[in-house]
């Protein structure tokens, strides 16, 4: 039986852990900017209430962006892992054959476009999920904008990609494709 050559990370994150992190940090921001914060007067001395509120909102926004980037990166890891396994183990189902047609083990994995190669394969195979895949592709454009430092004018409206929407998208992707995605087997498991 073929063995996987790719050096996968054994300690990859889970969607749950990323969401827990977001919830905890948001709670910390909530506390810091509330009158329940025993250091409130010291932390926000000389500031007006609207200034404190604005600062809190800015911090919420940055946290949302950070969490969105992590969650979308997690979703990418699901599809990239699946892509690598299908190609390296030379699987024979339709999606795997489609991938293997373009796959070259000498090329680096990131040269295969996530949106145009990896996700397009799923959209072709599951046309009933095309809208969901397209929604993910659009979110990936937002993620790329964040990941590369937001230095260009984003074509879409960034405010559209609220953290709640990204979390919801990640859960729908996971539940829709969970049974079809290939995962790195744990010790003792087989693919």
């Amino acid at each position: 039986m073929r063995k996987l050559q790719f050096n996968f990370n054994e300690h990859n994150q889970s969607l749950e852990s990323l969401e827990n992190y977001y919830d905890e940090v948001k709670a910390a921001i909530d506390l810091k900017y509330s009158k329940a914060n025993p250091y409130y007067n010291s932390d926000f001395q000389m500031m007006t209430d609207p200034e404190v509120e604005n600062e809190r909102e800015e911090n919420y926004m940055e946290l949302s962006r950070e969490a969105s980037m992590s969650i979308l990166a997690f979703v990418e890891s699901l599809f990239r892992t699946d892509f690598i396994i299908r190609c390296e183990l030379k699987k024979s189902d339709k999606l795997s054959k489609r991938y293997r047609h373009t796959y070259n083990p000498a090329k680096r994995i990131y040269t295969y476009s996530y949106n145009d190669v990896v996700l397009d394969g799923w959209a072709q195979l599951y046309p009933e999920e095309k809208d969901l895949i397209n929604e993910l592709k659009e979110a990936n454009n937002y993620r790329n904008w964040l990941a590369h430092g937001r230095y260009w004018q984003f074509k879409d409206n960034p405010a559209k990609y609220k953290i709640e929407k990204i979390r919801n998208l990640a859960h729908r992707i996971q539940s829709t494709f969970a049974s079809e995605l290939m995962f790195v087997p744990k010790i003792g498991e087989k693919l």
């Binding site: 409130y40 007067n41 010291s42 926000f44 001395q45 000389m46 500031m47 007006t48 209430d49 404190v52």
Partner: peptide, 9 residues
């Protein structure tokens, strides 16, 4: 002038 109702001042 920003205001007179501020924290600590």
């Amino acid at each position: 002038p920003v205001g007179t109702i501020l924290i600590a001042t």
